[in-house]
């Protein structure tokens, strides 16, 4: 297992370098000079441009530029946001936990819900439930996440007044202890639900197919021969085995969730990196944009790595 982990980590490094290269290449195609690509159209003084040129060796050949781009990243230096007078690294570090809280909780709730619903739809004898859930999944796929967010706000926040419409916490509040927590929770619920619907739909679909596939395997017949009941068979032979392809797909769906965070955070004014990305694009603050794209790409690669390890934990055949 240790060997497996080491190998996968080693494989992730060239992946990381090439994704950064891709980002770098896309920047090269930007109209205007390279400084323009880095700072965007935000009005910055000439001195700042000059210091960037020196720091990233923007007058040197492209490969040297890539090298310094990497060197700066490796030092945790993602540039300086002139728009907010803060280093990009600290800007992102400030926002990242918020996104992880929101996307993470939505992701987990969605996975759990989707797993349970998928398992039930695949094993139930009630056609009605299966059809209902399948229809729900199709509908969820067709509804844009941000529109669902708007609908939830209009219904539960504006019309019913159960939850706040936006933000992450009240501007001024002196609640403490459990009330503090509940207050935060009330802000989290709607955006989290929005995430959960999509993740849930995806996982439901994957789980259903995978469980049906597993139920067709020979070892299920063996389990029945041994006298295990339906439920015992599901518990002991279906859940783990059918989770394998679902787990494999979680890496991809994490990427989708990161993409979705841009939209959902915008609907709910949730101060995470998604909102930061949109704001930075509007302010033409490219330093932040580049930093964010790099961070998101790294996050996806790390997530894929974790998913691979989870897969290896679940499936003894690939631990080698």
């Amino acid at each position: 297992m240790l060997w497996f982990v080491a190998r996968r980590v080693a494989q992730a490094v060239p992946m990381l370098l090439s994704v950064i290269l891709l980002i770098f290449v896309l920047m090269q195609f930007t109209p205007g000079d390279p400084v323009q690509a880095m700072v965007g159209q935000y009005p910055v003084p000439q001195s700042f441009r000059d210091s960037l040129t020196a720091e990233y060796h923007l007058n040197a050949p492209v490969w040297t530029q890539y090298w310094y781009f990497l060197v700066n990243l490796a030092h945790g230096n993602m540039g300086y946001s002139y728009a907010s007078h803060e280093s990009v690294t600290s800007l992102i570090a400030e926002r990242l936990p918020n996104t992880l809280l929101l996307a993470g909780s939505g992701y987990i709730v969605g996975i759990v819900l989707g797993g349970v619903v998928g398992l039930i739809t695949a094993t139930t004898k009630r056609r009605g439930f299966d059809t209902l859930m399948q229809t729900g999944v199709v509908t969820a796929y067709a509804i844009p996440s941000f529109w669902l967010g708007q609908l939830l706000v209009m219904l539960f926040a504006v019309h019913l007044g159960w939850f706040p419409t936006q933000g992450m916490a009240p501007v001024d509040s002196n609640a403490t202890g459990i009330y503090w927590f509940l207050e935060r929770l009330s802000y989290l619920i709607l955006p989290m639900l929005t995430y959960a619907v999509y993740e849930g739909a995806r996982v439901t679909r994957l789980t259903r197919v995978s469980v049906i596939d597993t139920l067709n395997q020979g070892y299920i017949v063996t389990a029945r021969m041994k006298g295990l009941s339906r439920w015992q068979t599901v518990r002991s032979h279906v859940i783990r085995n059918s989770s394998l392809p679902v787990v494999t797909a979680l890496g991809y769906s994490f990427a989708v969730a990161m993409g979705g965070s841009v939209l959902i955070e915008t609907v709910f004014s949730w101060p995470g990196i998604g909102l930061l990305l949109v704001d930075s694009i509007k302010q033409r603050d490219n330093q932040v944009v580049i930093g964010l794209v790099v961070v998101i790409a790294v996050a996806v690669i790390v997530m894929n790595l974790l998913v691979d390890m989870a897969h290896a934990l679940l499936d003894p055949r690939i631990r080698a």
Binding site: Y219, V221, N241
Partner: peptide, 21 residues
């Protein structure tokens, strides 16, 4: 099935064993 009943041995031994247990 759990007691003194009848049992089966299947044709393809790999497919009838759970690979993850």
């Amino acid at each position: 099935r759990r007691k003194s009943f009848l049992s089966m041995v299947f044709q393809d031994p790999l497919g009838y064993l759970n690979p993850t247990k």
